[in-house]
Design a protein around this nucleic acid. Structure first.
Length: 543
RNA sequence: GCCCCGGUAGCUCAGCUGGAUAGAGCAACGCCCUUCUAAGGCGUAGGUCAUACGUUCGAAUCGUAUCCGGGGUACCA
């Protein structure tokens, strides 16, 4: 309905020869203010230097002339708001859409025929995923789902590097533990990975190969073995959370197919490359970046920035219409250089959007747990999923704004019964299902749309307004690329439902009213289900 | 130093493309289960929206400055 109101206002502005400003439609906080409201008259007042109330009255006059069948009431209020109350039959038509579209209700086609790539997790296979990775994983997957609901074809991509120093240390760490376990004294590598999982991998290696490799000079065998084991572990964890990648992109490919060389060459042709102190530099300062950066070290090894640039190029070359990266705050510094480079290489960087999520702090009994893959003390994402359910984990990571630090109190997350909003949503869904089951037992119809006009309580009107706003919420979560919008909406909807449930009985002696209300709550069931599914959570029919 | 996030009720957070009386949950206190699931609802109490100045008819929301917390600032990823 939002959209119709917007269209109508637009038409009126045109007829009145007012400037066509961006029209902001809202659902008023107070029911008494009507179903929809706009502040357009006040915006125009500023523009035209006229009295806002007068402008509002002019708009209302034309609105009434053309569209009176849509609105029960149109009025101006306060400093110049235009409030409308919709005609009942308009709302009811919108309500019927919910059941018609069912599991597709809320989806739109704005991204139809367009391809999006979402890169997330991208953890190198040096250890199990930590809780900190979890935030990126879940935000990335949920953003992908939001894009899909808005019609995009989405590829989820995981970028990784299985070469380089960290991986070498990983191999050496496993080798050292293996030798120890075989009774051979040796020195553990400096900065080696100390986690218990290293020893687990070493033991598994020993079980498979016995003492075959005690005289092995290189650590490569161990590295490869560890990589496979760790990737298996990572994929299992992601699978637990319902996250599946379409593509794993190996950084190594960029070397093999010469993309790295080509990127340096092309940047050089733009005059952005120079040599200094035996290293190859990117002249960031020429393109509004604060400092120049080394792309190839004096040792001949590239820094991470270079393959990152070459990698992002492939995303543009692969013709994606939308390119989204999910990073943790610790990677903050790299991407503006990459954007600058892409811009210089004449790619349309408006297609690219980087979402930076802030840190996750894990506390246990209010004491922070330090997390480091290299040190031993960290909580893995898998452990967390095992302690609570994966669904609780998903919800926890999405219900906070990604720009805010997330305080993950283990005690609360482990406690399934308590202050956990996910149960509030599930409970609403389950309550509806119970009523529907009872209705079926009583041979009542839940699809009878003949008596919907009887839905006349304030809270019923409020519910219908909130429910039919769901498609707009999906659009908003897309324009803002913010999963939190969905969870906030669902909590609002569930709260209204629980109030309704307490205040009114659905199944009563009055059959017509009962069937109208059943129709209403079944529609609500669909929205809660769709919203939860969008967040990767399966609805519960019983609790 | 510079860059990026955040600072809203005792705690955890919504609200931030300026709008009508700043909202939830938890914790506290008091009510509501003969009636579709009390994992719920209702009520009470709790606020200098970090601070100051500015823009505006109107600022939690925008701008500038300051303070506090987190992150980044490598020829590490």
């Amino acid at each position: 309905m939002n959209n119709n109101f917007k269209k109508h206002i637009n038409y009126v502005l045109d007829e009145l020869k007012y400037p066509l400003l961006d029209i902001n439609i809202q659902i008023p906080k107070q029911i008494s203010h009507g179903d929809l409201t706009t502040n357009i008259a006040m915006l125009l007042a500023k523009e035209l230097k006229l009295n806002p109330i007068e402008i509002a009255n002019n708009i209302i006059k034309i609105l009434k002339k053309h569209y009176s069948e849509y609105y029960q009431n149109i009025s101006t209020a306060g400093p110049g708001f235009i409030n409308v109350k919709l005609n009942k039959n308009i709302i009811l038509e919108l309500l019927k859409e919910i059941k018609d579209k069912n599991e597709n209700y809320g989806k739109n086609k704005s991204g139809k025929g367009k391809n999006a790539i979402v890169e997330f997790v991208s953890a190198n296979p040096t250890g199990p995923l930590t809780v900190a990775h979890g935030r990126g994983a879940i935000v990335g997957d949920t953003v992908s789902r939001i894009l899909e609901w808005n019609g995009f074809n989405v590829d989820r991509e995981y970028y990784f590097n299985n070469a380089g120093r960290q991986m070498r240390i990983l191999g050496e760490s496993v080798k050292s533990r293996y030798l120890n376990n075989c009774g051979i004294d040796n020195k553990f590598p400096e900065n080696g990975y100390q986690g218990e999982y290293i020893n687990d991998i070493a033991k598994s290696f020993q079980k498979k190969f016995k003492k075959d490799y005690v005289n092995e000079k290189s650590a490569d065998v161990f590295k490869k073995y560890a990589e496979d084991k760790i990737f298996e572990n990572i994929k299992n964890t992601l699978n637990t959370l319902g996250i599946n990648f379409d593509n794993y992109f190996n950084e190594d490919d960029l070397y093999n197919n010469k993309d790295i060389d080509k990127t340096i060459l092309d940047l050089d042709n733009k005059g952005l490359i120079y040599k200094k102190d035996n290293a190859t530099w990117f002249a960031g300062t020429k393109v509004d970046r604060p400092v120049d950066r080394v792309l190839i070290k004096s040792t001949g090894e590239p820094t991470y920035r270079l393959p990152d640039m070459a990698y992002h190029r492939t995303k543009f070359e692969r013709s994606y219409d939308k390119i989204i990266d999910i990073f943790g705050a610790d990677h903050m510094d790299a991407y503006p250089d990459i954007m600058a480079a892409m811009n210089q290489l004449e790619y349309d960087i408006d297609k690219m959007k980087v979402l930076i999520h802030q840190f996750v702090t894990i506390t246990e009994n209010n004491k922070p747990i330090k997390m480091s893959t290299r040190k031993a003390n960290f909580t893995t994402l898998q452990e967390l999923c095992d302690e609570v359910s994966p669904e609780v984990v998903r919800y926890f990571f999405v219900m906070r704004n990604i720009n805010s630090h997330l305080n993950f109190e283990l005690e609360i997350a482990k406690d399934q019964s308590d202050a956990n909003p996910i149960f509030y949503l599930q409970y609403a869904h389950a309550r509806i299902c119970t009523m529907l089951r009872k209705a079926l037992d009583l041979d009542l119809k839940i699809d009878n749309d003949k008596n919907l006009i009887l839905l006349n309580e304030d809270i019923e009107n409020d519910l219908m307004n909130t429910m039919t706003n769901f498609p707009n919420i999906i659009k908003k979560s897309y324009t803002k690329l913010d999963p939190q919008i969905i969870s906030n909406y669902l909590e609002d909807l569930a709260s209204k439902f629980h109030k309704y449930y307490s205040a009114f009985r659905v199944i009563t002696e009055n059959k017509k009213l009962t069937e109208a209300r059943l129709y209403l709550i079944d529609s609500m069931r669909i929205i809660i289900k769709n919203g939860l599914n969008l967040l990767g959570i399966i609805e519960k029919e019983k609790m």
